[in-house]
Amino acid sequence: MANEVNTTTPSETVASGGTPPAQPAFGRAVARRLRKIGLGLIFPLALIGFWEFMVRWTGTRLIPPPGDVLTMMWDFAFGGIYEDAFSASLPIHLWVSLQRVYGGFLAAALIGIPLGVALGRSPLLRAMLDPTLSLLRPVPVTAWLPLSMIFFGLGPKSAVFLVFLGAFYPILLNTVFGVKSVDERLLEAAAMLGCKGSQLFRSVVLPAATPSIFNGLRLGHGFAWILIVVGEMTGVPEGLGAVIMDGRTLSRTDLVITGMIVIGVTGFLSDRLIVLLNNRLLRWSPQHHV
């Protein structure tokens, strides 16, 4: 029967006869990993080279060369170079931005997932809410900015609201989709095994919808990082979006680019966290591993 197994642990034991010493599996995994990182680095390094070249070649003063940005990043993070208002201020800006992103994102998840589940399960609720939600959906979140500033005033609340709106729709729609597209067969299988009512929901609908819900969370999380910058560009003293806006006003392009890089890196790391959780919870589904 053992020969029927499709996938288990890959048999990594290589018979080493007179051939050169067989590389252990671990070594090969590391080599593969390094190769992947190396390949991924080629393009950004080329881009930095091109950036440096273009700045020198055109002699522009509007865009700083990569080295200046690096200096700025160091100063922004640890201070000790320029000793201005931005020196060593990264932690505080990052911290408030993170709070706003996760605040808005969590609120979107806390409302979007239950509402999505309810919409997916109840045709009545769908009939009542679908038209409204469908009409509001095409409105770009940034178009809400003026209204949001009236509702919440100039300040961080408004930014959190934008983040919430941006993350809300992908989470909601993917949850509805996941709940509605549970394989009918699985519901039949559960019913014939004597599982019904709320049990059916907990034991079948919810787990079956998890991949889709995670899809929504990941998308929503991406939008949250986009919108925090928009949200912080108006009337907020702190935050990565505010730093970029200040950089623009002060014509400090090195600051602008520094802000962009910090947001990119943080957003990426934060996304990896979701992916980690995703891969852990969806161990059962190889096609949902990211």
């Binding site: 299988a189 559960a190 014939m192 095994l193 589904s285």
Partner: peptide
Amino acid sequence: PGPDRGIVFQDYALFPWLTVHENIAFG
């Protein structure tokens, strides 16, 4: 449908998020 009639489908219809043991323990 009810537990007195157990169905075996051609496409198995196992719960993919449950292990072999958990699938068998479902009923």
